[in-house]
């Protein structure tokens, strides 16, 4: 049986074929999970956001013209919903900001390996830096694709990427020496 293209699956879904949509979900779950988990971490909200990404995609299928690839479209939704979740989280925990800082300091004092510290420092990046770093450095999109997904000029993406990497290097200096 020939493998159906994303566009064909979208068309079939529009005619009411939910199994076609299920194939689309299975095909793109990895990408969406990668983006959402990188933005939000391994949290319970990450799966909720992941589900919301596909529900939003399903609801907007009628408007999907196929100008961009399904994966790019889904990544864009995943980034936007993750940013919304980060804003919500910030509002929710604004009262406990000092706790977060304390956790970070404590973590630095304890023995952690580079992977754990990198994870921690990555989460400390401001959302605009985390977004470009997720797409370019974690998911492996090219700088041009990252700019297209985020609808940002290339120069902005490049400068944010450079700043994100410098911040990470600065935070990990102790661990990178070894």
């Amino acid at each position: 049986m020939a493998i159906e293209s994303d566009q064909e699956l979208v068309q079939n879904t529009l005619t009411g074929d939910l199994s076609a949509f299920k194939t689309l979900v299975n095909r793109h779950e990895g990408k969406v999970a990668g983006v959402v988990r990188s933005m939000l971490g391994q949290t319970a909200e990450a799966e909720d956001v992941g589900q919301e990404v596909f529900i939003r995609f399903y609801e907007s299928l009628g408007k999907f013209r196929g100008d961009s690839a399904v994966s790019t479209y889904l990544t864009r939704i995943a980034i936007n919903l993750s940013l919304n979740e980060l804003k919500r989280r910030k509002r929710r925990f604004s009262l406990f900001a000092s706790d977060d800082e304390a956790t970070h300091v404590k973590a630095k004092d304890e023995t952690h390996d580079l992977n754990e510290m990198l994870d921690m420092e990555f989460k400390r990046l401001e959302p605009e830096f985390r977004t470009v770093a997720t797409l370019r450095l974690v998911e492996g999109y090219s700088t041009e694709e990252t700019a297209e997904i985020l609808n940002l000029p290339m120069g902005t993406v490049m400068s944010r990427l450079a700043r994100a990497q410098k911040k990470l290097k600065e935070g990990l200096s102790k661990y990178l020496e070894t």
């Binding site: 779950e29 999970a33 974690v138 990990l172 990178l176």
Partner: peptide, 13 residues
């Protein structure tokens, strides 16, 4: 840093 950040295997929910 870049090597460590790069996703090595596909993620899943």
């Amino acid at each position: 840093i870049r090597e460590k950040l790069k996703r090595s295997e596909p993620d899943s929910f």
